[in-house]
Design a protein around this nucleic acid. Sequence first.
DNA 1: TTAATATATGAATATCTGTTCATATATTAA
DNA 2: TTAATATATGAACAGATATTCATATATTAA
Lengths: 118, 118
Amino acid sequence: MKECQCENCICVNEELAKKVKKKMLDDDILFDIAECFKIFGDSTRIKIIYALKLSELCVNDLAFITNSTPSAISHQLRILKQAKLVKSKKIGKVVYYSLHDNHVIKLFEIGRDHVEEL
Amino acid sequence: MKECQCENCICVNEELAKKVKKKMLDDDILFDIAECFKIFGDSTRIKIIYALKLSELCVNDLAFITNSTPSAISHQLRILKQAKLVKSKKIGKVVYYSLHDNHVIKLFEIGRDHVEEL
DNA sequence: TTAATATATGAATATCTGTTCATATATTAA
DNA sequence: TTAATATATGAACAGATATTCATATATTAA
């Protein structure tokens, strides 16, 4: 086994490892992709997403549907909104949330497929 | 506004909320979907997945490619393997990891698309 | 056998994250 | 105006999680 000259790291297959490392996406992009998946990786948020897939809904009703509290839901909706997964409109004192676009549904469905195929 | 009889929860639109709640997927399934996304929601694991998308690789080389340590990578590979996202084969003292199936790539690509479209 | 290497793993630590609670804001009704 | 309602938000807390470190195991070479 040869030692890599780079960064004190010992490679088993130096040729291949260097080649793959060169082809890697930028850390920033991979980080963003992970961050995107992280948003979907919480059961409260997944429940919200699934509920909004069925209908536009307000905070209180989402709390009822997900067996949670308006406060907890509001916090999670803020995260979902910052990630551009949901959008909102205010009518009177009620704020109605809906999915930002069909891409969100697509991601959800692929995840669901994967889980159901296991 | 009417109060729901169910679980001390106050709904803004009781009819709709009850209807949506009835249509919700089981908590177990939604939990599993969230767990699946959670696996993808870490940048070390996403790097591993992307690297394995390029080539079958062993632990040390993955550590080199991802600028991590063999120990950290080994821990994450265990998680990925338990989630059936990667599989492994041992040749001598080297353990080679690869993606479990194309479904993993599909999920990764959808996530990548989503991030790049924003 | 002993030494070196590749990987795995348990414990400890530090960080991150989700919920709760109290409270603030905005809107509507009385 | 005051009261009630819907939502938002900051702080605190508890629980989860990723990495590090030390060490163990397995395999190969000498």
